[in-house]
Nucleic acid binder design. Sequence first.
DNA 1: CTGTTAGCGCGTTCAA
DNA 2: TTGAACGCGCTAACAG
Lengths: 336, 336
Amino acid sequence: MKNKQVTIKDLARKLRLSVSTVSRALRNLPDINEETRRKVLELAAGLNYEPNYIAQSLINKQTRTIGVIVPIIATHFFSHALSGMNEVANEHGYHLMFCQSNESAEQEAEGIRQLASCRIDGLLISVSKQTQDAAPFEKLQQKGIPFMFFDRDLRHVTASRVIVDQYKGAFKAVEHMIQQGCQNIVHMAGPKGLSVADERLRGYKDAVEKHGLPFSPKHIVHCGKFQLDAPEAIKKLMKLQPDGIFCINDPSGVIAIQHLKTTGYCVPGDVKVVGFNGDPVAEVVEPALSTVVQPGYKVGREALKMLIRHIEEKSLETEELVLEGKLVIRKSSKMC
Amino acid sequence: MKNKQVTIKDLARKLRLSVSTVSRALRNLPDINEETRRKVLELAAGLNYEPNYIAQSLINKQTRTIGVIVPIIATHFFSHALSGMNEVANEHGYHLMFCQSNESAEQEAEGIRQLASCRIDGLLISVSKQTQDAAPFEKLQQKGIPFMFFDRDLRHVTASRVIVDQYKGAFKAVEHMIQQGCQNIVHMAGPKGLSVADERLRGYKDAVEKHGLPFSPKHIVHCGKFQLDAPEAIKKLMKLQPDGIFCINDPSGVIAIQHLKTTGYCVPGDVKVVGFNGDPVAEVVEPALSTVVQPGYKVGREALKMLIRHIEEKSLETEELVLEGKLVIRKSSKMC
DNA sequence: CTGTTAGCGCGTTCAA
DNA sequence: TTGAACGCGCTAACAG
């Protein structure tokens, strides 16, 4: 039943040639008679010959496979990033091997180990919320496996990265709220230590301070798992009687809006809300949620392009590409 | 700079043993002195030895890698399915290689070709909206590469599959609408020929007929790209003055609700709406959209589990697992 | 218990 | 222009 793959050896036998001649013909190397090449190519096509990439990899020491680790696939941003990577991979003849860390540093380290032992040519990673330890990345460096961060990175690790300017996005968003009349803006923040969350917080704080709005540590509440923590976070934040809530992402923005509505507040009349990401739910909630749209697809594309370039040029320099999110203003933050 | 990986040969040299002895020690085979095994294992750990899976694959003829092809990753259902597969893959020591067809039969065929030439051990696929041709799958069969469908399948291709009972889900949904008082239900359908869309349509039609509700070909409008076609489809359907719209999925259900509201209808008062899938937007839209939640994560898990079983048992029988969606009733379809 | 030999499918010398 | 021989890292068969 098992249909053995035809090998270069089979071709050689049928043509009474040596394997090395066949190999040369197949790879379009010079130093070969046009006539023999034609014959080889013809038979190869006829017999449906396909090179064994495994065998080639064993020699080349390259697999044309890139590993990708994301915290959670089922996310608007990361699924779009993967989609972008998929396209670039196709364009350049690479394959993608993926792994999900489930926001766990442990699973992430295990994923890195697994993928690295597969002899991938490079690794693209967006770290989990927990990740602090640089050790797994140092091991990659020792092994000589090129890797890069995309979106969520570890600041203190020397590596290339493609990120989105979270600081600027947050700053723009908060400044917009101020322009719309907010005088007291609070921030439902993400987990401490996560690069993107820290940057958004920094952007929020700078915008608030630049415009002389009130600020205190109480203006910020951190959420680990926002689906769980958000409701309580909002209650805490509302004690400050804010007229604006800047949320770490869109799902939490949606929760905020829903909570405000059920507790008798008017959005945007009493309180304006802005989220972050560009999730589909932001467009659907009522009032529609203003947000900073992250270019997930583009992040994926650019990250893989950069990594492939580094791999193929054997470049050791680190590079950093910073993209920008786009503030999309909807009803939830408009003056009325 | 390049840190050469330590090989079994290096271990052998340092221990003055033969490579085969080392190999046996490493693999915990019998016929080996406990003392030597200990030494080998110790040195291997000390030198950070890692087996070269490429070389092993060349011999075993197995890569412990599964290919996955999905129409669109950035989708609630498929991203959750991938997530489920990722978990099972980890549990069983497999890797996942993925590829997106972008709903194009051509890209899908190319993806199959690409993955197959990578010497994957098996393939999991959910077909594109366009796919009709069975040829790519026959080639897989010839090559002896086990493959399976999940969710969207090609009915006339003999292969195992893990699917969700779309017929039953649609039937339940429409029957629920009838119970809530609908007398004239129309259907915003998916593309013709797509297995899941056809089944949902069948379920809709049977439920309507069972209860003696009016039905005509005009009660159904097909959408290819629902984001584009939905608005027009709704206009057409509304000419029949329905009091219920059963939508092919949640995004189109959301569009329906929004359209109805802006044209002066009350949902669910005048018209009840039910979607399909369980996308997050369904919970957020107002009124919240009733839907049939598809167990995407479980489909992914079960599909990969089944495929791995088939691979490891070299089973040739085809198997079919049918899961069920769950009707979740929200405001958009409640009697009032 | 251990080592020798052969080979997986292919690429890379080097002679011929 | 072609072919023989060797090696990639590892496993498998057999002999010792």
